[in-house]
Simulated assay, not measured.
Amino acid sequence: MSDLITSPQNPRIKALLRLQQKSSERRQQGLTIVEGLRELTVARQAGVAVPTVFICPELAGAAQPPSLVAALDKSTEWVTVSKAVFERVAYREGSDGVLALVRPPHRTLPDLRLPSNPLLLVLEAVEKPGNLGAILRTADAAQATAVIVCDPRTDLYNPNAIRSSIGCIFTVPTVATSRPELLAWCKEHGIRTYAAALTDAALPYTTRDFRGPTALVMGTEADGLTPELRQACDETIIIPMRGAIDSLNVSTATAILTFEAVRQRDEMVGL
């Protein structure tokens, strides 16, 4: 355990803030920040390396959290900080006084190990970390094969995305790729693509068959899918709206479609 850091001007705290605020810094160092005992324990149990843990005894308690100590290896450095310093670097309210540097995995499409009947969630140009995090929670809950992000506008390991996912970014294989690479890869692996889009040709999602290898393809909340990706998909589906609005938040829509696919698959095997 290091000496107590009490100044926000400490070089290690300044470096921590740069990592928190700049995606370029995270990419360059191959690090990101995880705040919270629960999220950090999930990351470690998923096999993610944790070089450094910053802990505030006043918030976390005098003893190191036993569950986290058990999950970490002996090479992890523990750094103690004052409450004032921790509150400077914390990015959530009601923090439990634990924050860490982690080395997130970097995956590509060929790295994904596909089962015989994969269920993939594809997001195009996602830009809100909160939406990404919520979709990762859905993917974890449904045991989707992977989340694939085409041409992302946000860092997949943005600390806010990690927080919103409650650590599910580490339990669900997540890949960033381009539209052409995604389409070629899906075709190569016999994966049928379903574009969720508000068009005259779209069919109600409950009428489609998601029991085979499936990719549910979602666009941004503001713009939807690009015409190029929508037209390249095998089918276009819609969640019928019965009220005054014509669309749902992308994370909500993704959850509805995902669990319809799960329902169909469960029925197929008699669950």
Rank of each mutant, 00 (worst) to 15 (best):
A253Y: 13
G167H: 03
A100E: 04
S178E: 10
A49C: 06
A244N: 13
R263P: 08
T206A: 13
P66R: 03
T171Q: 09
A244I: 10
R137E: 15
A202R: 09
F86P: 05
R163S: 00
A196L: 15
V149Y: 10
V172E: 12
T32N: 01
V175I: 07
F86R: 10
F259L: 11
S178T: 15
R113V: 12
G47W: 04
L225E: 15
T145N: 01
F54P: 09
D246K: 14
D3W: 07
D151G: 03
T206S: 08
F86N: 03
L198Y: 09
W185Y: 15
I256T: 15
V98P: 06
E58R: 02
I169D: 00
M268D: 05
E35N: 05
M268S: 09
E267L: 12
E124V: 04
D3L: 05
T52L: 07
V81T: 08
Q231I: 05
R230H: 13
V79S: 07
T76P: 01
L132S: 03
E181T: 11
T226S: 14
L31E: 15
G130K: 08
A201S: 09
L119F: 12
G47L: 05
R265C: 11
N131Y: 03
V85G: 00
D140W: 07
P118G: 07
L114F: 09
T174S: 14
T108P: 10
A46S: 14
R103P: 01
G133V: 03
L17E: 14
L99W: 14
V172Y: 14
S251G: 13
I135A: 00
F170T: 01
V149K: 02
N131D: 03
T108Y: 06
L72H: 13
E77L: 09
D155H: 02
V81W: 06
T32E: 08
A100S: 09
A62E: 05
S178G: 14
L16S: 00
P240E: 07
F259H: 11
R44A: 10
V172R: 09
